[in-house]
């Protein structure tokens, strides 16, 4: 291998010059992850302080009594001259939520609206994802990008854009009336319809992406096999494609449902005065009536409601990971 001017023998005869001479016994190995473990302290502390601690504070305030003070709630721990004297906790805020009925209605209404929005999103997203997954690879990429692209444009502004379309004096009503299809503007804004539309529109990418990834992986041969075994197209879809895309359906639905329950912006901009969604009510509870303990108790209840779907989603993700590796 060596050429004339690069004599391997000469290469050999040069002294071995490892900078770290090995004549001395080598030191004990330094842990290569030591610096990483040290560096981890910072984000760890950050999360403990700015994520876990606030959460515990919410729990604490939710069992305090509202007071006209700064901050406007009673202390959990009662300190006296000789240290801790007692714990003052009340479940009054929670029992208020259940007695009152108002909050129960709002929670149910939020769940219902999020669920309907999710189903609508699925009904539109599934055919779209199916359509994209069946395109040639290059076009697939383009179509997917077109689904994701709006995500990068401000959510608030995209929701806002619907106001101009749906308004009584908006573009759609104007167009329909000038075509003579309707004579009176359709009430499309500031009602539940607008909120559903907003949810479908805003969360469509979250529905399409997981659906697409399961549908894309789905083996076309399976459909051919089903067809070969005599299944009609529709039956093949119901018997093969639909069950196999179940993980994508569940993943997409949870990805839409979970944030939709606590959604604030969509009901605040597009909803009517009678649109009851918990995010909006909490905003008002806090900014308008300034009842911190009740707002905290509502938060805790909302979180408890969301824990089941969140854990389910995590479970799905983990299974996906295991299948992938």
């Amino acid at each position: 291998m060596g050429s004339g001017q690069h004599d391997p023998a000469a290469f050999l005869s040069q002294p071995c010059e490892h900078t770290r001479q090995v004549s001395a016994p080598a030191k004990k190995a330094t842990d290569p992850q030591l610096w990483l473990r040290r560096a981890l302290r910072m984000p760890y502390l950050w999360l403990l302080l700015f994520f876990l601690a606030p959460f515990l504070i919410i729990l604490k305030i939710s069992v305090a009594e509202p007071m006209i003070a700064q901050p406007p709630f009673s202390a959990l721990l009662v300190w006296g001259a000789h240290g801790l004297q007692g714990i003052r906790a009340t479940f009054e805020n929670y029992s208020f939520l259940f007695r009152d009925g108002y909050y129960g209605i709002i929670v149910l209404s939020s769940l219902k609206m999020a669920a309907i929005g999710t189903v609508l999103c699925l009904l539109l997203g599934y055919p779209m994802a199916y359509f994209i997954a069946r395109q040639p690879p290059r076009r697939r990429q383009m179509l997917l990008l077109a689904v994701i692209l709006p995500f990068w444009i401000s959510f608030l502004l995209r929701v806002y854009a619907w106001i101009g379309l749906l308004d009584n004096h908006g573009i759609i009503n104007h167009a329909l009336m000038s075509m003579g299809i309707i004579h009176k503007p359709l009430a499309m804004l500031y009602n539940d319809f607008a909120v559903y539309l907003g949810i479908v529109y805003s969360y469509l990418p979250f529905m399409i992406l997981p659906l697409y990834s399961t549908l894309e992986r789905l083996n076309v041969d399976l459909l051919d096999a089903a067809a070969d075994l005599g299944a009609r197209r529709w039956r093949a879809f119901v018997d093969v494609t639909l069950p196999l895309s179940m993980p994508g359906i569940l993943g997409g639905c949870l990805l839409v449902f979970i944030p939709a329950v606590g959604e604030f912006t969509i009901p605040a901009l597009l909803g009517g005065a009678d649109t009851l969604m918990i995010g909006r009510v909490m905003w008002d509870e806090f900014f308008v009536s300034r009842d911190w303990p009740v707002a905290s108790a509502v938060s805790v209840v909302l979180l408890l409601l969301l824990i089941a779907p969140i854990l389910w989603f995590q479970h799905l993700q983990n299974r996906e990971h295991e299948a992938g590796s």
Partner: peptide
């Protein structure tokens, strides 16, 4: 990732 924004906001304010 899954926490409703409104709760994140409220809890941080309390903190």
């Amino acid at each position: 990732l899954v926490m409703p924004e409104i709760i994140t906001g409220l809890s941080l304010l309390f903190l």
